[in-house]
Every structure is written in C-alpha cells, then in structure tokens.
Design a protein around this nucleic acid. Structure first.
Lengths: 305, 305
DNA sequence: CAATTTTATTTGACTCAGTCAACTAATTGC
DNA sequence: GCAATTAGTTGACTGAGTCAAATAAAATTG
C-alpha cells in the first residue's frame, strides 16, 4: 500500500496536469474540431483500418456518440467506411487523404503549441521533462509493450536496491524486522568489499530500465560457492525469472569449477525452495531461529557440481 | 526550438495521460459531483478564504459557470461567503464543516483509487513515478514553492535506499568504486543488526513521499557517538538540509549524554565539511587512502558535547 | 437446427456542463 | 466627476455526451 505522502503527490500532480492539459487542449477551439474529434481522427489515422467497436473500447467513448462523430467525418470526406466481410455488422474505417491532411494539420498545430510552451523553459528542462514522462509511461503501463527481462552484472547502487527491495518485501510479506535488512546489508557489503570477479558474480534482472530481480554467488572457500540474495520482485513473479537466475548461478559455478553450490534459505519462502528442489539441491540441515523477530525454519541446501 | 522527437514524446505522453486521468476522473460518477465541482470544492478547502475571481483565474473557469456552482454549494451548505470589506464587489468564500467533510470524503475516495492503481505496480515504481512527476511539475512550473522536507525515523528499506543513493551519487560525482558501496552497506548492516533505540537513531529526510537525505548516529562506545552516512540528494541541495540533519544529530547526542560526537569523512566532500566546521567540529586526524579506487584524504572530526 | 441472446451500429430524445451576453454594483484611473 | 474596468449574477443558449430503442448480423443454447 503506497504511503499517504506519495498518494498526495500523485493527486497534486494530477490536478496540475489536468490544468496543463486543459490549457493545451483549448487550442482545439481554433479549429472546428473538439478534443474528442481530434482523438478519434488521430486514432483512425494511426491504424490501418479499425472498427467502431474497437474505437469505442480504446477511447472509452459512448457508441452512439462515436457513431455521430463518424457520420460527420464521413460527410466531410475525412474518412471512409467499408463493411467487414468477416462480420457484416461491423465496418472498417480508414482515413482518406483529406482526413490525413487534416489530422496532420492538427498535429502541426499541436507541435507548434508545445514548441512554444517549451521554448519558455530553462535549458535542459525539456529533455528532463521528456525523460520523466517516459519513466511515468513505462511504469504505469508496463504491459503495454512488455519488454523482455535481461540479466546484467551489478553496477553502482544495485546492492542498495537489493537491500531496499528485499527489506520492504519481506517486512510486508512476512513481518520480518530490521535485523533482516541488517543481514542483507551485511551480506551485500561483504560481497562488494571483498569482490573477486574471477570467482564471484552478481546478476541483476532488469526490465524497461527497472530492476526486478537479483542473485549473487560468493566464494565460500574450500571449492564451495554460496548462492545468495535470490529475489524476484512481486510484479515479475510467475514468469520463471527465479529459475533463470538460479540456472545462471549453477552455470557460473560449474564454469568456475566449484565443487559445490550451497545456500541458506527459510522454508517460508516456498517459491524459492521449489526452484532449489527442481534444480537438484538437497537439504543438509535445518534449524528453528528467531533472527528476524518471527520464528522461522532456516535451511541449508547444497548442490554437488 | 525543441526537436520533433521531443515534441512527439510530449504529445504521446499527453494522449496517454489524458486517458489515464479520464479513467481516474470517472470515479466522480459515483458521487453527485462533477470533476469541476470537486476541483472547486478542493481549491476552496485548501485555502483560507478565497474570492470567486481568484478561483476563476486559477481554475480557468467561466465566471458565470463558477457563480452557479458556488450558488449550488451555498444552497447545500458546503461553503459560506462574506463580503470583502476592502472591495464590496468581491466575496470571500470559505468552506463549512460540512463542506470540509465532503471534500475530505472525495479525497479519501481519490486516495483509495490511486492506492489501488499503484498497488499493482512493481516495487519501487510508485517512488520512481512520483519522482518523475515532481520533476515535471518543478520544470513546467518553476515558480511554485517546493513542498517542505520532513525528517522521520527510518523504516524498512531505508537502509537500502541509503546504500543505493550514496553509491550512485558518489560513483557518478567522484568515480568511487564498488568498495565504497560495500562499506556503506556494511555500516548500514551493522547499524540495523545491533540497533539500540535508546542510544542510536537514523533520520530520513523526505519530501513529497520521496527520500532526499539521511544521517544516522551509532554508539561508538566510551561515551562517543558516531555520525554516519550523512547524505543529501542532488535535487535537494542548497536548502540547508544537511545542516538540519547534523543539528538533529547534535541535539540527539547531547540529549543522550554522549560526551563526544565523532565522524569520518573525505575532504572532497566540501559541502559536508563546511557544515561540520560551522557546527564546531574540530579535525583530529587525517590520512591519505585509496579505499574506493581514487586517492582521497580521509579525515576524522570530533565535537565535544 | 431453430430459438434465443448478444453484438455492431444507428437514430431519437434528452440532460446538463459550460459559454455568451447583458445586467447591477463597486472600484480604478484620468 | 466621469468613463472604463472589475466582481459577480442571471437569462438564454449551444452542443458534448448519455440513455433507450431500433435493425441487422453473429454467437450461443438446448
């Protein structure tokens, strides 16, 4: 549950941006088109044939209202419609040359309007605004074009991200206290301070510029590799990402000729344990503990390589 | 003149956000109020007396239309108006208790709506979105006053944020390597693992739901308090926040009857050192080192309490 | 396979958000 | 002192958008 300060900031921004858009959208008063007219024409012009019911759905418009807009556009020669041979109820709408000229003219006016508004801003401000807009768009609409997750090596700040994300997630999901965050920070700190790139590695899973998972291998000595800080963000679970991260660890451990891969987990982390079992790990010890405020069952698993 | 790719991105974002706001604003259909009603009531409720002409200007509304809204609100007992003694044409509008209850209810519904929408997002996404929104707002409206920063105690994830932010900032600003992040993680981990709330504390500076600074006090034994991990985000510098954080540390250390406050810094951190000097710290030792990849001059400062 | 339900689209009737013009009262500026 | 402007209100009106009912076509059900 996002905290109230965050929610208040979103609402404040929404009020601000409603006014901002209101000023921009009033420009349509200089044309015979309403904002809705423009949205419809633009959507038709951006697609290669589209049905009215699809427009109704995507633009959240009343079907009767859309019908009237389309009738008017047909009358003005901006669009043409043809019956859909696959569904005689339906019509396929496309834009005419005249219509394309019109929405391109609307586009030019909109471009000029934004250019004028942005010319008044400080140097560099437009680029920063666009970067921020892209961030908001990508985060609010992650499924729009779900880019593939990639695995990459860690870089500055990622250990902090691991600490923050796991602390928040496990405090919320299991009620663990700050000592858990302390332990994760300690593990992360030691990993970085003593990092040996020949035998150790950290993978970060990232999607659309946002971190969504992690795992690291540390050298435990005596030919034993330690798999640590496996984590998949709630929003990215169920996609096999955890398995991918563990598989990558096993591959790395074998390539570096470790003789064994070892890990400590808590049995309450069911999804993770399922991955370990399927990967061939065996349980070698377990003990009850209260390290994080709740009584848990810690377990050590190993995989012979 | 901003380039066409930038303009196109702005327009694309505006189309997206128009739809996003359209979905949010439709929530008002569950109340007898229109979106404009809500905007008016909210604006009146957020100010300590306001005139109709000011509302007309700030909300970009037709004066006749606003007049009707206000008449209806008066009829429903949501607002009350009084003549302005300085201008008998003008009226000062204020919200009644009933009106305040009403817009607080609208606010609650809006909060729930946004909370539900944001709960579906990836961990960290709400924070990133809010940061981006704050950036857009500040750049499009440079004359608006930034919201006040607050200091609060740490909670789950904050140590991770400290590690991440300082690692990114100092890698970028000074080229320090991962061992710096390792050290910060180690300090943070030990602080949490051994946390003693009677003698230790961590302050997080937050603005509009976004973390912007930190500092912590750890018990170094022998009556010595250690000031650690002082940090102010680049976007919040120059406002005296660092001094505020240090002052809070000194106050806490004195209240807990430590005999001395000690800290280790690097002289390249000029702003921080300036704060320490002004606070009365004295330099007791310094040594060249290469702990983070670059040759730096580490310094230990102390303040007798 | 026929009957029923659902979907796509259109048209009629209607609501009401918002605009424009004209008005009164008060203030400002020359 | 008077003309111009501002603050606010009311009357009349436009048109964006909604709701219901209609026809035609497709999908579903028994």
């Amino acid at each position: 549950m996002p905290d109230s300060a965050l929610i208040e900031t979103v609402r404040d921004f929404n009020r601000f941006y409603t006014n901002f858009l209101g000023v921009l959208n009033r420009a349509y008063l200089d044309t015979p088109f309403t904002l809705t007219d423009a949205r419809v024409l633009f959507e038709i012009g951006s697609r290669n044939g589209v049905s009215a019911s699809v427009l109704t759905r995507d633009l959240q418009l009343d079907a009767a209202y859309l019908s009237r807009i389309l009738k008017r556009f047909r009358g003005e020669g901006l669009i043409e419609t043809a019956s859909d041979p696959d569904d005689m109820r339906s019509q396929i709408i496309s834009v005419t040359d005249k219509g394309r000229d019109q929405f391109q003219e609307l586009g030019r006016r909109s471009n000029v309007q934004i250019a004028e508004r942005f010319d008044t801003l400080a140097a560099g401000a437009p680029q920063s605004i666009v970067t921020a807009m892209t961030t908001i768009r990508a985060l609010l609409e992650p499924n729009a074009a779900p880019p593939a997750a990639i695995l990459r090596p860690h870089r500055a700040g990622d250990m902090g991200w691991i600490v923050q994300s796991q602390a928040k997630a496990y405090t919320e999901e299991y009620g663990w206290d700050m000592r858990f965050e302390g332990l994760v920070a300690d593990v992360a700190g030691k990993f970085l301070t003593n990092f040996n790139p020949a035998m150790e590695y950290c993978w970060i899973a990232e999607r659309a510029g946002v971190n969504i998972g992690s795992v690291l291998i540390a050298n435990g000595g005596d030919g034993i590799a330690k798999l640590r800080l496996l984590y998949v963000d709630k929003a990215a679970r169920g996609l096999g990402l955890g398995k991918t991260l563990v598989d990558e660890c096993i591959r790395f451990a074998k390539a570096r000729q470790y003789r064994q891969l070892s890990l400590w987990t808590n049995d309450i982390l069911h999804a993770a344990r399922g991955i370990y079992v399927k990967a061939g790990f065996r349980l070698v010890s377990e003990e009850r503990h209260c390290m994080f405020g709740r009584e848990e069952n810690g377990q050590t698993w190993v995989l012979d390589l």
